[in-house]
Design a protein around this nucleic acid. Structure first.
Lengths: 203, 203
DNA sequence: GGACATACTAAGCGGTTGCTTAGACCTAAG
DNA sequence: CTTAGGTCTAAGCAACCGCTTAGTATGTCC
């Protein structure tokens, strides 16, 4: 249960639905490279080499380099939306706490994927971008509904629901930028810290 | 006093110390392009064309494309540090309020520069990166001192000073990612909103 | 006017890019 | 054994990249 092994398991888990094996290895390699150097600074030769294959092998499974990015972005957005919505709590305060902890924690734990998800949107084709933006709007709507639920229950006191929604999302998303695996906080601790800070902000 | 004219004035103001005129026009063109498409997706031909000159003209004033990025990053970091430290208030609560309003507001008003400053660090050479990271640490230190001052004065109640510092900085920095000029909030309003949210978070 | 420095452009060089082509290898059905 | 289909590689193409070179225009000092 070393940290390296743990990180590898997480990658395998996120992309577990992707088949065949070579296509999944390519996605994982691309996600790593895109996160580390950015989409435009990554070459298809980088990706293929990291996946242990020849440059041409990329095009057996993907139409283009951009389609690799799109798949990472699509699966990443879908997963983070699931993380956000699958909190069991019903009480508005507990629900917000659990959701922020899970969402911020996901951005820390899967910071590699999250970085591609949050910072490489502009590299997508207009069509793919539109599809991903649709997912992002759903994420935003879920957070807004949770803020509104707390306000209606009289638990949250916010003068500006849109502003509060923006700030909660912004805080969580930015975790992908600053989080480093070797840092002082585990992903779970980041989630707990952020849940506390958001609650203070809203009440 | 159209918004286009206003935006242009801001750019001129930020880079006003840069001479000669052609070098400044090149910097402004590069900052725009880097912010819009990213450093690696921007070509030296893009920059030169936007500045109204031939591709070779870039190399009269700058040694490389990376040096353009470094100058934008260096001046941008220095300016934002000045914005953060030049708040006149002495009282910890008022000081934090004014500083967050100014810092977040700067990231909105100068979102073009701020985007390059915050998201293109990895494209710098190791030497230039080290120099910029030094500036970033000073910014972080200033925010931490303001949090500590509030805690010592008994005005802020935070269980984790490092965590609170991180969150305040993170919120402000992420403005550069989401802010759009045509949106519902002016830069000043963003500053006011964020100052309020941060104060709620800390007290 | 002549010598020199500065600011710029037209042309292009070597290297790298995303992607394609032609064909080898492996597996499995007939 | 033969054939077909899917997976992969070696080689390379056309386009584009950052940057350089050679040369022109302009202004300035003497």
């Amino acid at each position: 249960m070393t940290s390296t092994r743990g990180e590898f398991d997480l990658l395998e888990q996120t992309w577990s639905e992707v088949t065949p094996d070579a296509a999944r290895r390519m996605l994982v390699a691309a996600a790593r490279a895109f996160a580390e150097k950015g989409y435009h600074a990554t070459t298809t030769r980088d990706i293929a080499a990291q996946a242990g294959m020849s440059p041409a092998a990329v095009y057996i499974h993907y139409r283009s380099k951009e389609e690799l990015l799109f798949q990472i972005s699509r699966i990443g957005h879908t997963t983070s939306l699931e993380v956000l919505t699958s909190v069991p709590e019903a009480d508005p305060v507990r629900r917000m706490t659990a959701a922020v902890a899970a969402f911020a924690g996901w951005h820390a734990k899967h910071h590699t994927t999250a970085r591609v998800v949050q910072y490489e949107l502009n590299a997508l084709t207009p069509e793919h971008r539109t599809e991903v933006v649709r997912l992002r709007r759903r994420i935003e709507a879920v957070v807004r509904e949770m803020v509104e639920a707390g306000v209606e229950a009289g638990e949250f006191k916010v003068p500006d629901v849109d502003g509060a929604t923006l700030a909660v999302l912004s805080l969580c998303i930015d975790v992908a930028r600053w989080y480093r695996p070797g840092g002082p906080r585990t992903p779970v601790e980041v989630g707990e810290l952020y849940a506390d800070l958001v609650l203070r902000m809203l009440t």
